[in-house]
Each structure stands twice: as C-alpha cells, then as structure tokens.
Design a protein around this nucleic acid. Sequence first.
DNA 1: TTGAAAGCGCTAACAT
DNA 2: ATGTTAGCGCTTTCAA
Lengths: 342, 342
Amino acid sequence: MTIDDVAKKAGVSKTTVSRILNGDYSHSKEETKQRVIKTIKELNYRPNALAKGLKLMSTNIIGIVLSNLNNPFWSTVLEGVEDTCHKLGYSLMICNSDEDPKKEKHYIEEFQMRQVDGIVINPTVRNLQLYQQLVQANYPLVVINRRLKDFSINQVIGDNVQGSKLAVNHLLDNGRKKIAVTVYKNPYVSTWKERVEGYREAMLINGFSAYDLRILEIDPLSKSIKQVTMDFLKRNHDTDAVYSTNNMITLELIDAIRQLNLKIPEDIAIVSYDETPWAKYLEPPLTTVNQPGYEMGKIATQILVRSITEKNAQRPETVVLKPKLIIRESSNLNRQGLDLRR
Amino acid sequence: MTIDDVAKKAGVSKTTVSRILNGDYSHSKEETKQRVIKTIKELNYRPNALAKGLKLMSTNIIGIVLSNLNNPFWSTVLEGVEDTCHKLGYSLMICNSDEDPKKEKHYIEEFQMRQVDGIVINPTVRNLQLYQQLVQANYPLVVINRRLKDFSINQVIGDNVQGSKLAVNHLLDNGRKKIAVTVYKNPYVSTWKERVEGYREAMLINGFSAYDLRILEIDPLSKSIKQVTMDFLKRNHDTDAVYSTNNMITLELIDAIRQLNLKIPEDIAIVSYDETPWAKYLEPPLTTVNQPGYEMGKIATQILVRSITEKNAQRPETVVLKPKLIIRESSNLNRQGLDLRR
DNA sequence: TTGAAAGCGCTAACAT
DNA sequence: ATGTTAGCGCTTTCAA
C-alpha cells in the first residue's frame, strides 16, 4: 500500500497525493482534493515515514538517553519529555546508559544512524570527546540534570546548591546543630558534588567551621548502605540531623536510624533530595527538596525542538530550575506536635 | 557521508562496501576487506538506517505502548524491555497512552507508519477492533499485563487470581477473619477484576460466604482515596485485614488506618499487590505480592522478536507469570514479635 | 491545476 | 572476486 496505489485509485499523480497529504491544497482544485482525501480514507493509507524521512533527511524523532529507569525522578522527567514530544508532533526513542560510558556511546551512535532529529541526554559525563564532537557538528542536543562544565551547549539543570541551602537552612531554623550530609561517591556527577557544596556553603555562612562538616560518601556499589550509615552515625553519635542527597540513600538511612533505636525527628531530623510518591507516607512523613522533573523534561524537549527547527545557529541556553522545600514531619518537631493533637 | 563516499575512497563499488558492512566477507579477498574496513574507520562512516530500513522493509525498532510511566511496576517492565532490546540488537520507541484509547490508537498508527517491526502493549482494552485488525494483518504484537479475552494473540501476563490467593490465604493463616479488598473501579482492566475474583474464590474456598466479602471499589478519579477508605473502614469497623490490589491505593490506605488510630498489623493487617522500592521501608514494612515485572518485559520482548524473525505463522503463545508473596510485618504478628526481640 | 522524473542511501539480483 | 543497476516510497523541481 503506497502513495502510488492511492494515486492510481484516485486517478491523479503521486505528486498531487503527496501535496494533499501534506496539507498543501493551493495547487489542487477542491474537487480533486476531496477525491484524493476520500481515496486515502477508503484505502486506509498510511505514508511510509521511512521513505519520507530519507527524502527529507529528517525524521521527527528525538532520542533520550537516561542512566536509570527505576528512580521515580526519571519517570517524571520521561513523562514530561513524552508528553511534550506528543504535543510537538515528535516520536520518542529511549535508551538506558546505566551509567556505562560504552553503552552511552553506542546509543548515541545508534541514534545518529537512525537519523533522529535531536537528543536529550542525562550524560555519564565520561565521554567528553564525544559530546564535544556533537557540539562541533552542530547536532541538536540538550543536556539535562548534570552540568557539563565548559561546554557551549543547551542545558536544563536543577539548582542543586540552592536545594542544599534550603535543606540546611531549614534544619538550622529548627535548632539543629550537628548536621551531616550523605552522598553517593561519583566524581563525574556534578549533581551530587553540587549538593555537598551547597551543604558546605550553607554551614559556613551560618558560622560553622570546616570541622563541623560531617560528610558521608557512599560507594554506589556498597553492599549495605544501611550498615555504612549505621557505622557513620555511631562514629558521629551526637549527629542531630542528616541531609540526604539521594532518595534511595534516604530509605536506607531511615532504616539505619530505626535500628539504632533513635527517633525521627526527635533524635535525628531528616531532609532528603527529590520528592517521591512515597515520601508523604513514610513514618514520619519525609521533608524533601522537590525538583520539577516534569518541567525539566518539558523544557528540555521544547528547547531541543526549537534548536531543530530554527537551525540558524542560535546560541545555546542554560535553564536552571529552582527546587522547592516540602516540609513534613521528619524535620520538624512543631509539625509533629500539631499532628499529635489532631 | 554515504556508502558511495566510502566506496570511492576505498576504490571499490558500493556493493563491496555494503557486503563488508554487513559482515559478508565471503565475497571479498582479505586485502579488499581490510582496505574497506580501514576506510570506514577513517571516514568514521555510519550507514543511514533509514535507507537501509526502506530497502529492507524492516527497521530493527520495536515500539512499546505503556499506559502509565509513574508506577514503579512499569519502570521495571520498561527496564526489562530496554535491556532485552539492546541484547537482541533492537532499538526502542516508547509512548504513553495514559489510558486514553484515542491516544493509544494514534500511537499504534504512528508506530505503523514508522515501520517498527513489532509492538509491545499494555492495552487500554478499549480499541478491540484495532487490536483485531493488527492480529488479522499478522502484525507482530505482544500484549502484556492485561488479558485480551478471546484473542488469538501473544500475551505475557501475571497470574492475578493466584496472587490474590497467596494474599488471602496468608491473611487467613495469620488468623484474620474479616478480610476486605480494595480495588480501582475500571471495567476494562482484567488485572484488577481478576484480583478481586481471586479474593472471592479464596474466601469461598475457605468456608466464607458471599456475605463475608468486603469489596471497596474506588473511582480512580476520586478526590480523596484516603477519605473513601476511611469511610469504608468505619462502615466495616470490625475489618481485621485489607488486601489492596494496587500500590497507590495501599499508601492511602495506610494513611487512613493511621488517622483512625488503628495499628498495623495488630488491628488491621495489610497485604498489597506489587512490590515497590519503598515497601520494605514503610512502618511497618509491607507484605507484598511481587510480580516479576522485569521478566514480563524481557519475555515479552523475546517473544516479539521471535515472532518478527520467524514470520512463518507460529501460533500465539500465552505466558502466565507466577507471583510471589514477600512476607513482612504489615501482615504478620509473629514477625513483628521477632523483630521486637532483636 | 497537474504530472514526469530525479534522487534521498541503501541492498541484492544479476552480470562479469 | 567485484561491479552494474534497479528499486524501496516518498518529495520536489521543473515543465506542461
């Protein structure tokens, strides 16, 4: 079933069918137009997007490279990307680098062979040369979540330093003095580094010294994050608050605190990065730093599509999304008090 | 940069390059092969998958239609699909029907125009005619999660009746007598119907009568699931266990029980469908019916790829995946006791 | 207002 | 062992 079949059946040339198909009615008289449209419907004809793409050198497909499908933050980002693609008339190809630079490279090349019109990527930050090539080739690209230093490139990222300050200041406001931070150890990921940096800055600004910083760096491949965390809390037994930069660490942290027979928030207050579906249902409900994941996906897609359609070298833009603090009882004795009264 | 450029540079025809490119070395002598390979590398040439696809009428792309990106069950399924695609040399296009039959139809047609080799779908079950067309056209298709009754079609689904029996029997074993079930009201989704059916069967088999059944059907668009649940529990004040067929309902249920000042599991035991990242961290840790989501995605993809490559009308198969009960303290006084002792 | 024909980049049947 | 060529289904220039 091709455009030729439609043309024959309607008694016109494929040129005419092609025009009608693409909404160019200016060349045909009403009667022809109607006949062609009718024929298309009768045959239930659908144009072959491969042939169209080959001819036009453009596919209306964008690709996204994620590094983790299981974290709900990424589900939300993906939802934003998918919705926006749909609205703008693009299809979406997806893949998962799993933090593996080899896979990342493979997938980017795959996308290029498939002639996708542009790529959204949460980079492993371990293929710097490759990213640079893409930039130089003027390939439509938007980097999300992680900052690529010294790249002239479209980026949509969260303000992680600001998020940390919200968290730490809130803990200080609630009278906490011995505030620790937990973070995955990964030298490549700006996100996590910036969150620790924000913690450091907030502490120093508020009159603490470098000696007051309590930083627990956790190997992502660590057997038991809970055990590591318990050991840390034992070594720093007077810790009265923990700011966790990752929602999976947070769950292990809560477990660790429970097992040490300590109370949240009475003994240890908690604030965690990234709002999740479960945060408000934990016991006690968890205070979180909420990043607008859906927005991140949406804006990244909008910028990408813009840079696809307006090829005339507009300069790359960086959008920094502001986080919000969602205050719940895990960090807040007052709220806890209120709740008991109801 | 095309295959012609490579051919010219290497001083051979495009046929030869094409052969080498596709691993057919039998036609060329070693020296030619090496020269061509060298040239390909030097030019950093990547074949245009669009042209190849147009010629071959096959793209090595499969499409997946999901109905919800945010539920962690679907993230797990997607991970299984993505991994397996990668292993089998396929790329993946993704879209989200959002339970909207219009969108579902649109996306399936989009996939067809893009000549994807096959589709994995969690159907809205509201485009029966369309599914039937695909079957008749012998279009490679695998339905996951939801059963399509009276369709001769590949399916990979969970055994929901069995899952319910595991849940209910476990609750009965723990001495519960007044067991309720909560479920989203949606006449199209077999999954949920089957879970209630399994609850009914398990109750009747164990000597209860239809009068002992306590079924709470919840409108998915309901303003406050928590409120609805509280009302239900008040009306049925002697309920001593709830089997929740959905992980989002479960969170609201736990909240409702807390607000009624009842204890889990002392007053009300809970078992919930679908293991989640957070289940073991709830207070108390949640007993769940675990469906192998990753396996579901993996097996569906394998079946799909098989039905793509072995076009010779093999008959459709239905794979039913067995759920497992993960017993934690929300349903289990003994365990709770054990835990207190540690 | 309409159509003929070239060509997008690739593969494969068919020479040589 | 290698090359010539037709053609996959579409768009678009140019001619009528």
